[in-house]
Design a binder for these strands. Structure first.
Lengths: 280, 280
DNA sequence: AGTAATTACGAGGTACGTAACAATC
DNA sequence: GATTGTTACGTACCTCGTAATTACT
């Protein structure tokens, strides 16, 4: 008795005829007919009432069908578990306080583990911590080591914030600026920039912050208006715009160092990534 | 994924090595090794930690094993049900008030349905009735039609009781006898003769009834003692003994007519037997 | 006529066993 | 050296698809 035969039994019952079932199963009618005969021979019981031109499950056939479906249900459970395992094996869930480190990780991991799919999620540090603990995330990226037992932390990159000002702007001529200098100036800011948004709101309390979700739209607005915005050394998106000047920001909290955190008993693959980062 | 592979996984875990499992499964070691690799490939996961010279289930392997055993348990349920069905198909359970009709049926059924195993059980009429109703028996044999709805009754044979008396006995010279004539005489009687035992006890209230369970022992005692016993036209066991005379018994209850009873919605085979008996 | 199931036959693929190999106890 | 697992190779079996047949609607 083979699982395939039970699957066939199931389909035949649902479709009503061997022909239709054969089509659904992508095999020929004679093949399916023979396969059913084999199953019957194996079980030692006829499962169908046969007229010359039609088959119909008999009482014993329905008993067989019930059992077949129970077996197939168990098999599906197993398949589901292993499909999920395979999916997990391909994906690397990253909980991060800012987008830049996940870009950095992506280029690194994709080279080392081809086929891996990174799933970054931007959240505040508390949620990064809990995601890591609950193993909802494989890697957590924060601004300082999480200092949890059984969690390793390694610095991976720094990111510096710059002012991107239109050439005519009052701040565009400066060599450096501070948040105090910029406060009051209206700013266009991308959504989903993590903790940087908190920095902006805290350090530019009187500025009007215009949040734009869509990156393409953001780029268009930046190119066509004289609003100030931010850029970092992790991107060069707005920097190759001739109409804009990139001005370093002097304040300490315009400079971030990111740490990647991982459970010490994580999967082999995660540990390899941590080891790789540690070497650099 | 095939059931056989799951069975192999189960055996490998129990045996500890692929070699031992292969032997138990009656295949070669390389074959089993490859089969395991196929399963792993199919599931997309390694199930074993491999050293050069040994394999051991890993965490995922144990998950697979759990599921495999769940599937195999369901498969076993199905197999058990169908094994039982096949067994039922080969056996014919007969509830009867006397042994002779079951002998009669046996010769009849074995010719018509080769391979059939008859399982006669001797009991009183009430139990025959309830066995038939509860379908613990396929055929019930009684002294008169059961007259139940949905139950067919057909006469199959008669049986006449004879006195078997040693030549020297006072009754041996008679052409016929009655129970009254015989009462007081000690009797040797076989066990498991059904309702005949009731007849003896009722009609020979003052006789000593010696019950012998073993048929061979019974025959020996009959041959070597001068005890009276009974015989019927359904057997010729004691009749070819030159030292004994077979005397007809005149009373009405020394003559039995047996009826075979069967549920009208019984299996095809049972209905065929009923039809066969009806024709005669 | 058209659909549905079974039987006959040839071909291809798959999994088996044998044999050779590698490595550990 | 014995045991255990993997790899290489040739073969045999098994199931598939095609084609022909039968029967029912």
């Amino acid at each position: 008795m083979e699982l395939e035969q039970l699957r066939q039994l199931d389909v035949i019952e649902r479709d009503g005829t061997i022909s239709a079932a054969a089509e659904e199963l992508h095999i020929t009618q004679p093949s399916l007919s023979r396969s059913v005969r084999r199953l019957e021979a194996d079980l030692g019981q006829e499962l169908f009432d046969r007229t010359r031109n039609h088959v119909m499950l008999n009482d014993i056939g329905y008993i067989a069908l019930d059992h077949a479906r129970a077996i197939l249900a168990e098999e599906k459970k197993m398949r589901d578990v292993f499909d999920e395992l395979s999916r997990r094996q391909r994906t690397l869930r990253i909980a991060t306080v800012a987008p830049a480190p996940s870009w950095h990780l992506t280029s690194l991991v994709v080279n080392r583990f081809p086929g891996t799919i990174l799933v970054p999620e931007i959240m505040d540090e508390d949620h990064v911590r809990s995601s890591l603990i609950s193993r909802t995330a494989d890697l957590g990226i924060t601004l300082c080591p999480l200092q949890l037992p059984e969690v390793d932390s390694i610095p991976i990159m720094t990111e510096d914030l710059f002012l991107s000002a239109p050439v005519g702007n009052r701040l565009a001529k400066r060599d450096t600026v501070t948040f105090s200098d910029m406060d009051g100036e209206p700013f266009l800011v991308l959504d989903q920039i993590g903790f940087w948004m908190d920095v902006c709101r805290r350090r530019l309390p009187t500025s009007q912050i215009i949040v734009q979700k869509d990156q393409t739209v953001f780029a268009q607005i930046v190119a066509s208006t004289s609003l100030c915005c931010f850029t970092t050394d992790a991107v060069d998106r707005a920097s190759n715009d001739a109409n804009r000047i990139r001005v370093p920001i002097a304040d300490a909290d315009a400079h971030a160092t990111f740490f990647v955190n991982a459970q010490r008993d994580a999967t082999e693959r995660v540990r390899q990534i941590i080891a790789l980062l540690g070497k650099k």
